[in-house]
Design a protein around this nucleic acid. Sequence first.
DNA 1: CGTTGTAGTGGAACGTGGTTCCGCTTCGCA
DNA 2: TGCGAAGCGGAACCACGTTCCACTACAACG
Lengths: 201, 201
Amino acid sequence: MAVEDGPGGRAATRKRADARRNERTLLDAAAAAFVASGVDAPMREIAARAGVGVGTLYRHFPTRADLIVAVYRHQVEACAEAGPALLASSATPGAALERWIDLFVDFLVTKHGLAAVLQSDDAGFRALHAHFLDRLVPVCARLLDAAAEAGEIRPDVAAYELMRGVGNLCVGDGSEFGDPRYDARRVVALLVAGLRRPAPP
Amino acid sequence: MAVEDGPGGRAATRKRADARRNERTLLDAAAAAFVASGVDAPMREIAARAGVGVGTLYRHFPTRADLIVAVYRHQVEACAEAGPALLASSATPGAALERWIDLFVDFLVTKHGLAAVLQSDDAGFRALHAHFLDRLVPVCARLLDAAAEAGEIRPDVAAYELMRGVGNLCVGDGSEFGDPRYDARRVVALLVAGLRRPAPP
DNA sequence: CGTTGTAGTGGAACGTGGTTCCGCTTCGCA
DNA sequence: TGCGAAGCGGAACCACGTTCCACTACAACG
């Protein structure tokens, strides 16, 4: 936010014009490569698509995680902002939670391999946890709290754990392969059903 | 079974003595490497541990999946056999199902990265699906059917999907890393809770 | 106890992908 | 226009999977 362009904002770290142009080109190329070959498309291929050398790619995005974060930043942001909106517009907090999780699942399932890489405990992917989960977990927590307070779900489930669980369930449901015997949405629905408060006494 | 040694059993495909020795050595080496570095330990390292060349490793186990299957065959077998036993010894089919799933989760969680590789839709890992899931899904299906018939759970959940879901939830819960915020067991319990029949009318 | 066909072996060699490094280019300011 | 430095390209290096084939050593047979 504070580090944006604009005629007046000559921040201390103003990048050169060609550098910013390359960064945009790289983002577009990466986005295209991701839909074509999944989020672990070869770095060389991404650089080639952008018409730059791999050195340039690494200069702008030191790790693959940085690149992924940058490519999907907007969509994550949209998902995060949808949380409060759903809470306000849904009949019950539980319904809002369900719809929000649907959104999250949609996001993951349509990105080949994103879910898989999101769970990796590989050191280089900490940045993914940091940007994706740190942004979304609080949103989920609010929905969870609201639903728990309304007595719709049990109150002892942590948002982080739920998000990780949902993310995990999306692994392998890339529409690229389409195993009809496994539908992440169905299984996530099962998990969400498990949230429901055990019949009150 | 039919391809075992024994003085009398000179099957058409009798392997040379040193070959069988190497195979055993390789299995031991692979098991050791798997606990040390996870199921994607470098092939070279496994061969080195066994004191043989990589060529020998590939001769005996053409793909990594073959190696993994061979290493864990016994444990998968034990898990499969535990199904009917639990069904017979538990108070209700639902309880048997829960305990059996616990067993399965234990198995996956204690093998670094096995769960992850088990979900991979990579062509080379079909053999894993074939040997692991094909063996366990029918066992799970029996438990599921019994529990559904007893009215304990909803009848519309496929064993394959449940197994894949549980397997997915185990990804990233390697005890090696121990993120205390994510406990596969807890989330699987949630999923299983979601199986419970919605309060009957 | 040789001889010999061949199953079995070892490891060099090749392909692929990630990552680094450094000489050259180009920008943008004076 | 000159110049310092930010930025660029891509060759080079490494790690790993996988293949291939000259060589070894087992075991069947004379």
